[in-house]
Amino acid sequence: MPLPAAKPPDGATLFKQQCAVCHTLSLSEPMRQGPPLVKVMGRPAGKAEGFKYSEALSKADFAWDDGRLDAWLTNPQAVIPGVVMAHRQAKAETRAAIIAYLKEQN
C-alpha cells in the first residue's frame, strides 16, 4: 500500500523554518540580523525604521511587491549586488507560499 502524498508546508511554517532566524513579524520583538518584515509589502526596500541596512540595500529605489520578493528570495545579490543576505530559495512553490504568508501579515 503506497503512502499518501505529503502535504507541502504552509507559508507560516516555511517562514518559521527559513526566515524567522533572522526576521521577525513584530515590531515589539528585538531586532535580529535582518529587518522586521511587518508590513513589508509595499514598503520601500532598505527603509525599515531602526534597522541598519547594508550600503547597497539602503540605496535601493523600489518598493517590495510579489515580483521583487520572488526575485529577492531566489537570489538577493542578483537583485542588489553587495547585499548581506545570503539565503536563497530555489523552489518557486516555497517562495510563493512565503510571499503569500507575508502578504497575509500586512
Rank of each mutant, 00 (worst) to 15 (best):
R43N: 09
V83S: 07
P36W: 05
L37K: 01
K59H: 11
I80K: 03
A86W: 07
P8K: 11
S54P: 08
E49P: 10
P76N: 07
P9R: 11
K39N: 14
E49K: 15
F15W: 11
W64D: 00
Q33G: 11
P81R: 07
A92Q: 12
P30V: 09
V83T: 15
G34A: 00
L57I: 08
K103I: 10
I98F: 08
A86D: 12
A56H: 08
P36R: 03
Q89E: 15
V21A: 14
K7C: 07
N106V: 10
Q105K: 15
L25W: 12
T13N: 05
L102S: 03
F62Y: 13
D70M: 09
D61N: 15
E104V: 06
T24Q: 05
W64S: 01
K39I: 00
R43Q: 14
V83D: 08
R68C: 01
A48Y: 12
K16G: 14
G82P: 02
V21C: 04
L25R: 09
L3V: 08
F51V: 04
S54T: 11
G67C: 04
A12I: 06
S26N: 13
R32S: 04
W64L: 00
A92K: 14
K39D: 13
K91C: 05
K59S: 03
S58R: 13
L3M: 10
V84I: 11
A78R: 06
E93A: 14
G34I: 02
P81W: 07
K103A: 14
L69F: 11
L37S: 06
A6W: 09
M31W: 08
A100D: 12
P9N: 12
P4R: 12
